[in-house]
Nucleic acid binder design. Structure first.
Length: 469
RNA sequence: GGCCUGUUCGUCUAGGGGCCUAGGACACCGCCCUCUCACGGCGGCAACACGGGUUCGAAUCCCGUACAGGCUACCA
């Protein structure tokens, strides 16, 4: 039987790192067995239901290439949930309760026991009303257990499961019920979700049975992704928005590869693999059990490796949003494809994320150069710099600038010869020139850059810099 | 408080009784290369939470403790 899995995010703003990995594992399982990946937006809570948040989930998944076979929204399926609630009520498994939160808490405090609902209205025969919620009558004894592919066989004593709410007093169902109804209706075969859902699984199973579900789906509770303090990643305190990683220039295939690794690794232990390889090798049984830290430093390293491994054409293409697109620090007309193409290979091996590209080549494109004061001060500190600047300006004016093919040797030889004359080693000799012409102490190889920049602009910037001394 | 889950280098992990004097990757440190920054090469630091068992033998199996996390909503 082909697997039918579902990714069921609630629209809380954007898809985040943890959600993406859950989606990935689900998607992979679906793609392995000619199965179906069902995207189900869990928007039963109106406070979390905003249209742009919903489309944000779609966009993210598309960007990562995780295509879905079906897409549903729980807000469009409310009749189904209502009839399921009726069915449970007809079977005598529910009751109405109009206790307020305060009352429940007060009673819990009074009896000195643990917080939680005490079954107060269980046999009071209360009627439905504007302030009444429908609760599910849970068993008082016995144990609910299930097989979990990654955790073994967790067991939960039934007496610890309170009579939980199925339908709010405003008529809206809660996600537990909606979940079971949908999974039943959509014939979901595997429930691959985050570990945080483990404790609610007994409720799920109780409802599954009460609705005549038959054999339950296969469960796989994957470990959560945590921050450096080992807490579950949270939208408010941690950086988890996929959009922010995208805008910074992380590649989608790298993020997928990296995220897959938190909790799973291929049989041969290698760390780099493509999505297709993961589809071929992934097994839920191999997913680890302990939470993993989302280490951005390692992500960066992966991203840089991948950038370096691609063809220069691909690199140029993929850097466009930051050069000529919406993420560029200059207007579109500032970008000159030919200029960038000339230095692209040099830039490619120097950036870890695509957003770093503009700063590397800005000096070749912008009309007005901004010079970093700190870098300049440091570069002109050694004695001999003034003489060097004067001489190099003069001699480069007489040096042939060979553009076709680009030839850096003459410029290089001249500068270092002057350096020898004034007593500056190569490192110190190139520094003032680099800062004067590129504005920064770091960047692509200097002489190759100057050939691209051209004689006039180079000399102009050297004279401007000299004038500041 | 209760219930549940987890625990191998700083981090992600390999490991499923002897192949482990515990391997890889990222990070970090050193050296080499070098016009800066990177890349690359070489080398280094660094872990089986603790305590009991079981066994000829335990990172691997069992129990306990500690610590961490999750859940305990008329959120998902």
């Amino acid at each position: 039987m082909p697997p039918r899995v579902r990714f069921a995010p609630s629209p809380t703003g954007f898809l985040h790192v943890g959600g993406l990995r859950t989606a990935l594992y689900n998607w992979v399982v679906a793609r392995q067995g000619d199965g179906s990946f069902v995207l189900r937006i869990e928007d039963t809570d109106e406070a979390r239901n905003r249209e742009d948040w919903v489309t944000g989930i779609d966009e993210s998944l598309r960007w990562f290439g995780l295509d879905w076979d079906e897409r549903h929204r729980q807000s469009e399926r409310t009749e189904l949930y209502a009839s399921a609630a009726d069915e449970l009520t007809a079977a005598g498994l529910t009751y109405w309760c109009d206790c307020t939160r305060d009352e429940v808490d007060a009673r819990a405090k009074a009896r000195g026991g643990p917080p939680g609902y005490d079954g107060h209205c269980r046999d009071l025969g209360k009627a439905a009303g504007p302030s009444a919620a429908l609760r599910f009558r849970t068993p008082d004894s016995g144990t609910t257990s299930f097989v979990d592919v990654v955790r073994g066989e967790p067991a939960f004593p039934n007496d610890a499961i309170e009579d939980f709410v199925l339908v709010r007093s405003n008529g809206k169902v809660l996600f537990v019920l909606a979940n079971v109804v949908d999974d039943l209706d959509m014939r979901i075969t595997h429930l691959i979700r985050a570990e945080e859902h483990l404790p609610t699984t007994p409720k799920y199973l109780l409802l599954w049975d009460a609705l005549g579900g038959g054999p339950p789906p296969v469960f796989a509770h994957v470990p959560v992704i945590v921050n450096e303090k080992r807490q579950k990643l949270s939208k408010r305190r941690d950086r988890v928005a996929l959009e922010s990683f995208r805008d910074e220039g992380y590649l989608p295939e790298v993020m997928l590869n990296f995220l897959a690794l938190i909790g799973w690794s291929p049989p041969d232990g290698r760390e780099r693999f493509a999505l297709e390889e993961m589809v071929a090798e992934f097994r839920l049984e191999d997913v680890g059990r302990s939470p993993g830290f989302f280490d951005v430093a390692k992500l960066r390293a992966f991203n840089g490796d991948t950038i370096r491994a691609m063809t220069t054409e691909a690199f140029v293409e993929r850097a466009q949003p930051w050069l000529s697109g919406p993420l560029a620090p200059w207007p579109p007309e500032t970008y000159d494809p030919e200029v960038f193409a000339a230095v692209a290979p040099l830039v490619q091996e120097r950036v870890a994320v695509l957003s770093e590209v503009p700063a590397m080549v800005g000096f070749l494109l912008v009309p007005e150069l901004t010079v970093d004061d700190g870098d300049w001060e440091k570069a002109v500190k050694p004695a001999g710099v003034v003489a060097l600047l004067d001489q190099v300006t003069e001699r480069w004016a007489d040096t042939a600038w060979v553009h076709d093919p680009p030839t850096a040797e003459p410029l290089k030889d001249t500068l270092f010869a002057i350096g020898d004359e004034v007593g500056l080693n190569r490192k110190r000799a190139q520094a003032p020139v680099r800062v004067a012409v590129t504005g920064r102490a770091v960047g692509p190889p200097l002489f190759e850059s100057l050939v691209v920049l051209g004689r006039e602009r180079t000399l102009e910037r050297l004279r401007a810099a000299r004038a500041r001394l």
